[in-house]
């Protein structure tokens, strides 16, 4: 690991190999990435290039075969070996947003956010108020008491974002969060990540296929055959209205 100020994410020489012998597949090879707090990074690449493997590895779900991971300055993985309680660490330092909103179907929008807060030790009443405030902030406060099935795709994704940032994580990991949304709503979600990263000092790594919103990101990377390389610089943003957080 470097001697610079602690990064939100510091992945070093990550390699993930599945199977052995003839069935051996290298899903990720020697990938290193450093993301500073407040930075928003996009990860591009075709299906099967290793993007999701990278995301689940730094998300402490899928251990690497080799390499190291530090989050918020804390070393958590050394090869496949966990250096801390990964589940507790995920709870406090990581926020996840997926292609599908992945909300718990039997909890309302507010409860989906509240449960993340309560799992981290916030008392019921405070968690309830904080969850409601967060949903208001993301423009879905009026849908707080609705079940996920009663929300639109964009509203569900906002609730998922609210849950991801509820515990003020150091790192937000998003896997194609706009895949189920139309263009304008997809862009709104991407801009939401940038705003949250700026305001809350969290870093975000977003896997996306949506090239229309790449200008939102600070840096863009491409993955191919399990290797990571910087992508071409994003085009300059077109002049237009400032990012909107109005409900989808």
């Amino acid at each position: 690991m470097s001697g610079r100020a602690p990064a939100a994410l510091e992945a070093e020489a990550l390699t993930r190999v599945y199977g052995e012998g003839e069935t051996r597949v290298v899903a990720m090879r020697d990938v290193s990435l450093r993301v500073a707090a407040g930075e928003v990074v996009a990860l591009l690449g075709p299906s099967g290039s290793g993007k999701s493997t990278f995301l689940t590895t730094v998300g402490l779900i899928n251990p690497p075969t080799a390499g190291r991971v530090a989050i918020g300055g804390v070393r958590v993985l050394d090869g496949p070996r966990a250096l801390t309680d990964l589940r507790a660490f995920r709870r406090r330092q990581l926020g996840f947003v997926f292609q599908k909103s992945n909300l718990i179907p039997f909890l309302t929008a507010r409860e989906n956010v509240q449960v993340a807060l309560e799992l981290d030790g916030t008392s019921g009443r405070r968690a309830r108020a904080a969850a409601h405030a967060l949903l208001e902030e993301l423009g879905v406060g009026d849908r707080a008491e609705h079940l996920p099935a009663e929300l639109s795709g964009g509203q569900q994704q906002r609730v998922a974002v609210a849950r991801a940032i509820a515990n003020r994580p150091a790192l937000i990991l998003a896997d194609e969060p706009t895949a189920a949304l139309d263009g304008p709503r997809g862009r709104q979600v991407m801009e939401l990540f940038r705003r949250i990263a700026r305001e809350r000092g969290a870093a975000a790594v977003v896997v996306t296929h949506d090239h229309r919103a790449l200008d939102v990101f600070d840096r863009t990377y491409e993955m191919e055959d399990g290797a990571l390389r910087p992508a071409s610089p994003p085009p300059a943003p077109e002049p237009g209205p400032s990012p909107s957080l109005t409900p989808a």
């Binding site: 589940r87 996840f96 992945n102 718990i104 179907p105 039997f106 449960v115 799992l119 981290d120």
Partner: peptide, 11 residues
């Protein structure tokens, strides 16, 4: 839902 709860850190 249980997998999701584990993912977001539920003990």
């Amino acid at each position: 839902s249980i997998a999701l709860l584990k993912l977001i850190g539920a003990p």
